[in-house]
Design a protein around this nucleic acid. Sequence first.
DNA 1: GGCTTCGGACCCTAAAAATC
DNA 2: ATTTTTAGGGTCCGAAGCCT
Length: 317
Amino acid sequence: MPPFSSHPHQQQESMSTSQGQQSSHHPQHHHSNSGGSSGSSGNGPHVQFNSTAPSPMRQHQQQPYSSLVPPLSDTHYAQYHQLLGPSAFSSAQSSPYHSNHSTPYSSMPGSPTQEYQQLSGSPLGQGQKPKRRQVKNACVNCQKACKKCDEGRPCSRCIKYGLTDTCVDSTRKVRKKGIKRGPYKRRPPPSQLGSASVSTSPTMRHAAVPSGLAGYMSEPVTALSSPTQSHLLPLTTSSHNQPLDFGYDTSGGQGGYSFQSHRMESTYAPSYASYSGSNLYTSPYGMSSSSNGNNNNNGGNNNNNSTGTNSGHTSMP
DNA sequence: GGCTTCGGACCCTAAAAATC
DNA sequence: ATTTTTAGGGTCCGAAGCCT
Ligand SMILES: [Zn+2]
Ligand SMILES: [Zn+2]
């Protein structure tokens, strides 16, 4: 993971830069600081660099983009949305909305959270949080508001707020290629398989994971993961090793989109702590020699740019 | 109370690396 | 060629500040 992950929010424009690198996530968000502390928590693959920096936030308020992004009390909204049910999405245009949509929100049964339930039928144990599922591409309005969207194109949220005309998919950047990564962690020994079971049980690898997260560790594990490996794993092990049960089509993904940017946001200094070597994240990279001739070595790689990185939420000009 | 913001946890999945 | 790991790029929860 990147030393300090560029923050998901914001971005705002292709910085040009040599190769247009710039990895900030959020399409537009401005957040003003860097650090995330995500890391340890959960299985989140991206441990972010925690840079404290309380940041005065909440100060700058350029102009509410309310005009574009209408409210919609999520509670209410969620209820409605929940109607979609966990799997309702997946198929592109399956939004129940279109199919029947006559149901008044008020009559929607279920709780908001209900919608994110198990997707792959995994029981999701007692205390576990159900996995949150996301749409592949949120509409611009929801994206800006950081609110939940759905597959339907005028998405339900936009419909509710009468933004159907502006409800279009947000653009996505294409992941860059050629980024070096450094060696991966050891892999499980070839044969042995079934035998290992018990002690080496698949669960081993997740051992380090906080109980609460167990739910994420669904994967049945197709014979693999040796104990050795497990201890090597950072405790941020990724939940799924492989796209086994993905409901979506892998191919589809985000085909090349050209990025665009909507909004330039006013002044939001990048400010994120530069990552100096703390290995908060046990990645092979860090340990790798200093040389790192080729790989830019840890996240640093193309992020450097990051300029915009860190915050994202934008707030309309 | 609702609405607006937004920090950052959580997710998805393509690409790199490791194996086969 | 296939599998596994990793991280780029994203979605959106949930809390806090504002507004009415
Ligand atoms: Zn939407
Ligand atoms: Zn929409």
